[in-house]
Design a protein around this nucleic acid. Structure first.
Length: 915
DNA sequence: CTGCTCACTTAGGAGAAGATTT
DNA sequence: AAATCTTCTCCTAAGTGAGCAG
């Protein structure tokens, strides 16, 4: 077709694989409209695969990754369709690691953890009333809500702009040539802090506080928030300024301990924030302890024979042993892990030696013949001993540890004491790459001072390296925030020692991140309008970009940089989606099924704009096939460059922050309408968490559901069922007292719940009987102990028998009940009223348990923490907490409160702060 | 551009610490 | 007091994106 004709001029984003033509002719476009082609092989319908891909082996090592090369894009022309993946549907969060697992059902548990399997009839069937929750197409469901939210966003954007124009004539030019670094800075201008830039000195006054409130000019350097609210009234300050000032003053000199000191968010912004510090002092890093060889008699056995490993090899063996002993041992079953480990282990043995009992060199040829159990026992015994230490010993150990790390805990950053994050050098171990990482299981070697670069103030004392060693380098880069750095041996990735999350620098950049996201509010409508238009562009690159933006915006996908497929797990983000990752179901549904960051599976079906649907079809047009890039003329830097033209500093990732925070903000607003928002603290917390959960789902933050989950649910379900049984019995007792109640209340009231069938009841009764029996027996024994302790004569067995009589009675009672279908009133002075209140109590308990169960199940594979920590503007939470009168501790743990100190302080009392 | 280096944020799981139940 | 479950902290892998040289 005509199309191919011009494949030229446009620069290609993707060097390999089958490409789309660079232009889309009108005719083609129209054709696409009508045709309902079923192009390429199995495109429609079900999502393809779940499985494997993976092509030959991946050996070949070569450096790569974080530090190293990224590239990739080799089109795998391998049509590896089959994989009888029945896949789908399952909640499965991650792809099982290898083909083998695929058939999962059988029982290869270790690797995949139970979760993958089909669940046994869950507690739901047995107990819970079933909460609306789970209909599948979550994406579909969320879509509508999102649409509303977006509409709102658009309106708001207009309002913001309107205000702004009024306030200041020439508002920011949207584009501007963007002189290299300029862009980035510029944006900050409204950031209080530090806003960057040099340039901006010019008068164009850049103020404009974010949420458009009336601004008093002073703003430009206004720090933040505080002012924003309190609008007119200077009232704001609660503990007000004076207090602050003193505090600040104090902090100046007493920089020592007042960690709470400096409130940078109230300080004037700095002009150049590329310089991160003027002076920086710290004590370097804490190295992992030396390896201590095992006692001579603890050995590995090979093929039944004891082996004396050289210390170097032995250390590597202990890495393995440590993992055998650990709680989760699944890595050890992973063939890639095993193979990589063994390759490295063999190398160590070759290099450093291993001898048999007679001192002869011995060849270790197979991991299967290596028997580490003796070492494992030793290790376990040691752990046990540690656990059994006395209180004093434990305290002493802790004191020693504390003393050891004390020097590294804090650094001094421009005179202020700041917490350091990871001052400990990563100890040697086996590399635990996630997903199908080709290098997982390799030995991550010990880091020597010679590999470490120190970054420190010029005038500061350089930490002394361990005796006999020296640092790789010492530098004084004021534009870097790290204190020490090295490269790891597996991938050449850079590792940095940086400040902790509670530090000022990290707080500042967190703050900036959210302000940037808020700034996007002002542009979002235009951006959306533009990409909607570009969905029809005849320039393929533009159309792809628009389509990608659509996905990033609506589905919160990550940008999707290229990766080095040889040396890293095969995962994708938006721009790196491949042909096989989406399937289209006319008229407008798209199913995504791919592994994202950390090999977490993204498997959602969404309704999309018809034009998007059409485009995706176009991007999958033959001859494209499995392994080819969906967006072959787009990459993240092009995308980001485009975004940057709307707003300095705008990148794909900002959308995730924006959408998460904005969504949270809208959801929380809606809560005001829920009556429960006036309920108990627990209820309010639950409501908040429900919102949080929606955001987490949007971002696809998952976690592995623990092995015990199903069981726990079962247990909870049983408890609930038991309560309902008790409730029914109580009702029956009412009848026992006043048969006339049957008419009054209606027969239905006294019906037994259907699921409480005879069989279950018998079982449950048996359980209750057992329970009582053990209770009584225990009590008896305990009483006897007591007597003995008091030197009194213990009660005879007979006493126990007598006491157990109650159990017999219970049994008899149940029997009778089962036979007659009646229940005798229990308790002293039973009255109908008493029973009624008892029933209410039971109902309450049931309700509590039910929400608990619901909650737990809803949470089973969703991780709330990631969004809370990284995506939801903490000020939203603070405001919510104030407005609804829930202590902030309910939402933020101690460390989170430290991390978000800036947020807590800057909007306190600001119930009207808005994202 | 491309390819590479480097810095910094985001992410889930392991393990420790607490809380609750037995 | 031990066992078990929950929550929090630590750990470090895996992303994003800037900037530079060719």
């Amino acid at each position: 077709m005509a199309s191919d004709s011009s494949d030229d001029d446009m620069p290609l984003a993707r060097p390999n694989g089958r490409l789309s033509s660079s232009k889309i002719s009108r005719a083609e476009d129209i054709a696409l409209d009508k045709s309902v082609p079923k192009k390429g092989s199995g495109m429609a319908g079900l999502s393809i695969r779940n499985g494997p891909v993976e092509n030959g082996d991946m050996d070949l090592d070569s450096p790569s990754t974080n530090g190293a090369k990224r590239k990739s894009r080799v089109s795998i022309t391998k049509v590896d369709y089959n994989d009888g993946s029945e896949s789908d549907g399952e909640p499965l969060a991650k792809r099982p690691r290898s083909k083998k697992v695929q058939e999962s059902d059988s029982d290869d548990e270790p690797m995949v953890k139970a979760r993958a399997k089909k669940l046994p009839p869950s507690y739901k069937e047995t107990a819970l009333p079933e909460s609306s929750s789970d209909e599948q197409p979550l994406g579909v469901k969320l879509a509508k809500k999102k649409a509303d939210i977006e509409k709102k966003a658009e309106k708001e954007a207009k309002v913001i702009r309107a205000k702004e124009t009024k306030a200041k004539p020439t508002s920011k030019p949207t584009s501007k040539p963007t002189p290299k670094k300029a862009p980035k800075n510029e944006s900050d201008d409204d950031l209080p802090l530090a806003a960057s830039k040099k340039r901006q000195s010019n008068g164009s006054a850049v103020k404009r506080k974010s949420t458009g409130q009336k601004k008093e000019e002073s703003d430009s350097d206004a720090p933040i928030s505080k002012k924003s609210k309190s609008a007119g009234a200077p009232a704001k300050g609660k503990k007000a300024t004076p207090a602050k000032d003193t505090k600040k003053a104090k902090s100046k000199e007493a920089s020592e301990e007042d960690e709470e000191g400096f409130e940078w968010w109230n300080a004037p912004k700095r002009e150049d924030d590329s310089i991160k510090w003027q002076n920086l002092e710290h004590n370097g890093v804490l190295f992992a302890p030396e390896y201590e060889p095992l006692p001579k008699h603890i050995k590995m056995y090979y093929d039944g024979q004891p082996v004396t490993l050289s210390p170097e090899a032995e250390e590597v063996a202990t890495f393995w042993v440590a993992m055998m002993t650990a709680a989760s041992t699944h890595h050890l079953d992973n063939p890639i892990f095993r193979k990589n480990f063994f390759t490295d282990f063999s190398d160590y043995i070759k290099k450093y030696g291993a001898k048999d009992a007679k001192g002869n060199k011995i060849d270790i040829k197979s991991l299967e013949k290596c028997d580490f159990t003796k070492m494992q026992d030793y290790w376990a015994a040691k752990n046990e001993a540690k656990k059994n230490m006395t209180k004093e010993e434990k305290a002493a150990a802790k004191a020693e540890k504390d003393a050891l790390e004390a020097p590294y805990l804090y650094c001094t950053w421009d005179g202020r004491k700041q917490k350091v994050g990871n001052f400990r050098v990563e100890p040697p171990s086996l590399f635990r790459g996630r997903g199908e990482h080709p290098k997982t299981g390799k030995v991550k070697t010990r880091v020597l001072p010679e590999q470490i670069t120190i970054n420190i103030g010029k005038s500061a004392k350089v930490p002394t390296p361990p005796a006999g060693h020296k640092w790789k380098a010492v530098q004084h880069d004021q534009k870097a925030t790290w204190l020490a750095m090295w490269q790891e041996n597996i991938n050449g990735a850079y590792k940095y020692v940086m400040l902790g999350a509670a530090s000022d620098v990290k707080g500042q950049s967190d703050y900036k991140k959210f302000e940037k996201a808020r700034e996007l509010k002002k542009h979002i409508d235009k951006i959306r309008r533009d990409y909607t238009k570009d969905l029809k562009s005849e320039v393929m690159a533009d159309r792809q970009r628009a389509t990608a933006m659509y996905l990033i915006d609506k589905l919160a996908l990550r940008a999707g940089n290229e990766k080095d497929t040889e040396n890293e797990a095969d995962t994708v983000g938006c721009c790196s989606l491949k042909y096989e990752h989406i399937s289209l179901q006319p008229p407008d549904q798209v199913t995504f099924d791919f592994l994202g960051k950390d090999s977490i599976r993204y498997n959602e079906t969404a309704h999309v704009d018809p034009q998007v649907f059409k485009n995706l079809k176009l991007f999958k047009k033959p001859p494209k096939t499995d392994g080819d890039d969906l967006f072959d003329r787009l990459n993240t830097s092009q995308l980001n460059k485009h975004l940057n033209s709307y707003m300095p500093g705008l990148t794909a990732k900002v959308f995730r922050t924006y959408n998460a925070s904005y969504t949270m903000s809208e959801l929380l607003k809606e809560l005001g309408k829920d009556p429960r928002s006036r309920g108990t603290i627990a209820e309010k917390v639950k409501l908040y968490n429900d919102c949080n959960r929606k955001v987490a789902i949007l971002c696809n933050h998952k976690r592995t559901v623990g092995a015990g989950h199903e069981q726990q649910m079962q247990k909870l379900g049983d408890r609930i069922k038991g309560l309902r049984y008790q409730k029914w019995r109580t009702k029956k007792m009412i009848l026992d007292l006043e048969p006339t109640q049957k008419k009054k209340k209606g027969a239905a009231y006294f019906e037994r719940d259907e699921d409480l069938d005879d069989e279950w009841i018998k079982e449950h009764q048996q359980f209750l009987i057992e329970e009582q029996r053990t209770k009584i027996t225990k009590k008896f024994e305990k009483d006897n102990e007591k007597l003995k302790a008091n030197k009194e004569r213990p009660m005879p067995e007979k006493e126990l028998k007598e006491r157990l009589q109650a159990v017999k009675e219970l049994e008899a009672k149940f029997k009778k009940e089962n036979k007659t279908g009646k229940v005798e009133a229990e308790g002293r002075g039973p009255t109908v009223e008493k029973f009624l209140t008892a029933i209410e109590k039971i109902d309450d308990r049931i309700r509590i348990l039910e929400t608990q169960a619901e909650d737990r199940d809803g949470n089973k594979e969703v991780a709330l923490s990631t969004s809370k920590i990284n995506y939801i503007d903490p000020r939203l939470t603070v405001v919510f907490s104030q407005k609804f009168d829930v202590p902030i501790e309910k939402f933020f743990s101690k460390t989170l409160r430290d991390k978000f100190r800036w947020a807590i302080k800057s909007v306190e009392d600001a119930e009207d702060w808005e994202f």
